[in-house]
Simulated scan of single mutants.
Amino acid sequence: MQSSPRSLVEHVVSKVPEVTLGFWIIKIACTTLGETGGDWVTMSLNLGYLIGTLIFFVAFVVLVSAQIRARKFYPFLYWATIVATTTLGTTLADFCDRSLGLGYPGGVSIILALLVASLAIWYRVEGTVSVESVVTARVEWFYWATILFSQTLGTALGDWVAGDDRGGLGLGYEVSAAIFGAGLVVVGLLWLWPRASRTALFWAAFVLTRPLGATLGDLLDKPLTQGGMQFSRFYASGILLAVILGCILLIPQRAARRVPVAVRER
């Protein structure tokens, strides 16, 4: 005799890390590496924005596929994928702003539209854009696509505010870093407000940390005449990579909480 169906609860382990202070420290370091690393490939190696974008796009697809196939949260794999999104975001934003001639305002507008569309489609399909929902392959693709667009938007925003060409506001790297840093402080204060949406604040902080990293990266490798410190992009990228690896090893990380999913047993 077949037993009647009954509901069970299965706990699915998320493969993204818990959002803590350590998460944001590593994320900012990764975004800064994305700026210096992306510029090293496209400018220092003279490969150009199109070739650089294609190279990092392949790395992005390979790493996201590996992340999705993984059975659990692996810190080095996760952060390598984040670095892939931030380097691709750097070259993609530069390709739109410079190679396509859209300028900073045009690039920001298009990339912002893509980010909003990604979040809207994700929400329409899944009913949430919370990081805690990233437990299936489909949601992971939404997650990584949204992260890519947010990284690209952050690059374009940072260049627009700091640069004085292509329609930029010309505020310089130090002032731009202060502006985006202040924005993050505001988000942090709103986090203390119980009624604030944690999901909205997460994505706001994710976008803001990218231009902060972009302006810090530009501050490191741009010429002195442009307000930078004129460090070699190669050596700056190497130092940042060492900092990221050290943070991953030293800062405790764990997967986001297990998400209960209703299943049926017959």
Rank of each mutant, 00 (worst) to 15 (best):
T42Q: 06
A113Y: 04
R195D: 09
S237R: 01
T81F: 03
W160A: 07
S130F: 09
G101Y: 11
T90I: 03
A137C: 00
S65M: 12
S118H: 10
C30S: 15
F180W: 10
L216M: 12
G52N: 00
F206Q: 06
H11S: 06
G181P: 10
D159P: 12
L212Y: 08
F142G: 05
R124W: 13
I28N: 11
S133G: 04
G154Q: 07
A236M: 08
L171A: 01
W141S: 01
R138M: 07
L92P: 00
S14C: 15
T32H: 00
K27H: 11
G154A: 13
F180C: 02
S4L: 15
V61K: 04
V134N: 06
A204G: 15
Y123P: 00
L184P: 06
L112G: 10
F57H: 05
W203F: 05
H11E: 08
V243C: 13
G213H: 00
R257S: 13
A80D: 08
G188F: 07
I244E: 08
L190D: 01
L224A: 15
V185Q: 06
G167V: 14
G181F: 02
L245C: 09
L169M: 15
G163M: 10
R233A: 07
F149Y: 11
A162E: 04
V62Q: 09
D97C: 12
Y49G: 04
E18R: 15
I244M: 01
L157Y: 03
L63I: 06
L245K: 00
L240F: 13
L45K: 10
A66V: 12
G89D: 03
V61E: 00
T85K: 02
V207S: 00
G34P: 06
A84I: 12
A113C: 12
L245T: 07
A262L: 15
D97F: 04
L54Q: 13
L220F: 14
V19Q: 13
W160G: 07
L100V: 08
V187N: 08
L45R: 08
Y104P: 09
A120H: 10
Q253P: 12
V12F: 07
K15F: 06
V83T: 05
Y173V: 02
I111M: 08
D164V: 04
A80N: 09
V41E: 02
W203A: 02
I147D: 07
R264A: 04
I55P: 11
T225L: 09
S176Q: 01
D164W: 14
S99N: 11
P223Q: 02
F234K: 07
C96M: 15
T31A: 08
T53C: 05
R124I: 03
S3N: 12
S130M: 05
K72F: 02
L112N: 00
L115H: 01
D165L: 12
T215P: 07
T146N: 13
A178I: 14
V62I: 15
D165N: 15
F206C: 04
T91F: 11
F234A: 14
L45Q: 14
D218A: 03
F202G: 04
Y123A: 13
L157D: 05
